[in-house]
Amino acid sequence: MTPTATRKPRRGGAAADLLLAVSLAALAVGATGCGDAGERRRDGPLSVVATTGMVADAAARIGAGRVRVVGLMGPGVDPHLYKASEGDVRRLQEADLVLYNGLHLEARMGEVLGHLGADRPTRDVASAVATDDLRAVPGFSGAHDPHIWFDVRLWRDAVVAVGEALAAVDPDGAAEYRRHLDAYRAELDSLDAWVRRRTATVPEPARVLATAHDAFGYFGRAYGFEIRALQGISTATEAGTRDVQDLAAFLADRRVPAVFVESSVPPRTVEALQAAVCARGHEVRIGGSLYSDALGDPDGPAATYVGMVRANVMTIVEALGGAKEAP
């Protein structure tokens, strides 16, 4: 019996053909998608894409019925680490106006936003804040702390940029935008006053805000709190053992009543800090979860900027021993 091959030798042919077909199809689909990015629809609401929830909220308030706002970063999303997806880029490219925080808060989207600025109307709200009002970051000359929304007065300035940008893109609605902007700024004024009243009730030795990362610098500066954090300005940094030890020692010495978890950073970090402080003999509580770099759930109290600020302040004040006043 002569040996005969029982199967035809398998070539890569069929698989290679399939791969080629799929690639060509993908190419075709991609090509058609880039067709009408330049057209702007004036019939119907303005399409505004915002990065953070705070910026989106401002755009929704000021634009009201004339705009349709889409926020890229939902509740609990960390803007320092957020990477734009393919869909995000498409949304950005089709928007009539792109709004973002600026000051490198959206650190991983810098390139995308930069390229967009070339042919789309884009505006960073931090541009409306005077440079003198910004906090410099120690050790990084020229860079500023981007968490400007924690000082309500600064945010009051920042939202002007939203109004200006909307008016520039849609001059017909300029008057309406102006009205909404003024109303919003008045609301922010009273919010700021409320925050000052509430935070004033926290006794002096307890005025320490310890969180996972250094987001609350403006809050501390505006309302008189000492800010301590494990990680730096950006959550991309990693805390070392010494950092945990130093902060734990400080909190134990000052007998700070509470430390705070952040909604966009894992709670483990702060839990470890708490354990370290307790090991030094001071029972520190976890005072609650603060909204640091994002808003809360859309059907909760912190779904808007104002709601978020109120929720944060109430959590802080109550945990640190301030008066429990009805909101």
Partner: peptide
């Protein structure tokens, strides 16, 4: 791989 190395 279809090549006989030992046969029968």
């Amino acid at each position: 791989r279809d090549k006989p190395v030992l046969w029968d």
